[in-house]
Simulated scan of single mutants.
Amino acid sequence: MNRHLSAATAVGGADDVAPAWDGDNEQWWDWYMSLAENPDEAVGLMEVPVPDPGPLPDDDAVVAELGVPYELPSGAVEAFAADGFVVLPRVVSPGAAEALRRRLADLLGGPGAAAGLRAREMLWLDDPLVRAAVLSPRVAGIAAALLEVEILRLYHDSALCKEPGAGRTPWHHDAHHFPLDSHDVISTWMPLQPVPAAMGPLSFARGMDTWRLVADLPFDKVGTSYDRRVSEALRVAGVKVHDEPFALGDVSFHSTLCFHTAGANATTRARMVLGATYYADGARVIDRPTMVSGDWRLFVPGTEPGEVAASPRNPVVTRTPSGCT
């Protein structure tokens, strides 16, 4: 029995995810993080330098920066289509990253008694700086350009704070999570500080079709066997894993089909990330969402399974010829 599961979600076998999630999404994250395999022995935390971002810009300056379209490097669209992900340099300036980091820290509040991964979604509804970031011509525009889709909608944003000593995020692909009937779904991962190897950068299994190698593995809603089996299957198949540190300003974008994981934060500094997920306009909610989708009705309220996902909480971002909104 997994202590994070309710009586309703614990029913059935370990691979039975048919029940709807009946908690909130913070509880969902506690459950999902418990499915990652971590070493038994304690690891000492590494001191990491705190970068000097220079003068802190005000909100208007950050919004203005994010309003400038980003010029994709040559081959980025092709690399995304082949690998399922791309990491882009200098998407945000050090000052903008620090301003967003401080804003997310304020919105999340201080860590609880048992620090782990703290997460909160839909901050864009309440905070204008987060709203400007996730709907910006720069960030959302890159997402549209990489997918080569003219009109996207926001599924949700996410503030993810992995506290010092917090463990791994299990191997997964987002197609298992997001209850959408489209593969034109993309997520961004914007770390708001440098992420050295010891801090647990997001890591990606190369190959848009790599998910097929593990498609038949049974999911484990109770323990860590799925995480372990995916890791072993990728190793046996010789799949290359991109597991590189993120420099300040680097932002990654990954497909809903891309298998990815993140290491433990073995440093003394919290790892703060602003994430967002976008999907092609016209996508529908799948007929049978499961507990793996968490409280999905928070993100597309008033939408029933089988209906088009186009609630007021899913604003449109459009692609222009320059690849921006």
Rank of each mutant, 00 (worst) to 15 (best):
D295A: 15
D126L: 09
G12I: 12
V11K: 14
Y32Q: 08
R235W: 10
D287I: 12
F178Q: 10
S293C: 15
T224F: 11
L56E: 08
A7H: 03
T256H: 01
S158D: 03
D59I: 04
L123P: 00
A119S: 02
I186F: 10
P55F: 14
S136T: 09
P201F: 08
Q27A: 15
L192T: 02
M46R: 13
A264H: 05
R206S: 00
D220P: 06
D22R: 11
H260E: 07
L66W: 06
R101S: 09
A280G: 07
A264P: 00
N38H: 10
A145P: 07
A132I: 04
D250H: 13
L213A: 00
R138W: 14
D106Q: 14
S136W: 04
A166R: 05
F80R: 01
V17H: 14
E37V: 02
A266N: 12
E163N: 10
R212C: 09
M291D: 04
L146R: 08
V222R: 14
A266V: 04
G323A: 10
Y155Q: 03
G116E: 03
V50G: 04
A18W: 09
T210S: 15
T224A: 15
D22C: 13
G13N: 09
R284V: 11
A143K: 04
C324N: 13
A36V: 13
V300R: 00
E37T: 03
D106P: 00
L274K: 11
T318D: 02
M33F: 09
R131V: 01
R319T: 06
P128V: 05
D30I: 07
V86Q: 02
V230E: 08
P289M: 13
S322R: 14
W21C: 06
L217M: 04
V308N: 09
P53R: 02
F259C: 06
I151D: 15
S34D: 04
A14K: 12
F246L: 01
P312K: 11
A270W: 01
M291R: 01
P73R: 13
P194I: 05
V77W: 02
W28H: 12
D58L: 03
K221V: 03
G13K: 07
R102F: 05
P19H: 07
S225Y: 01
M1C: 07
S203Q: 11
A266S: 11
S74E: 15
V239L: 11
D184F: 13
H183T: 15
D243E: 13
H260M: 04
L125F: 01
L135A: 05
P245S: 14
A81L: 11
T267Q: 07
A20C: 03
V87D: 05
A64G: 03
Q27P: 08
D83C: 12
L35D: 11
S322N: 09
N265M: 12
W189Q: 04
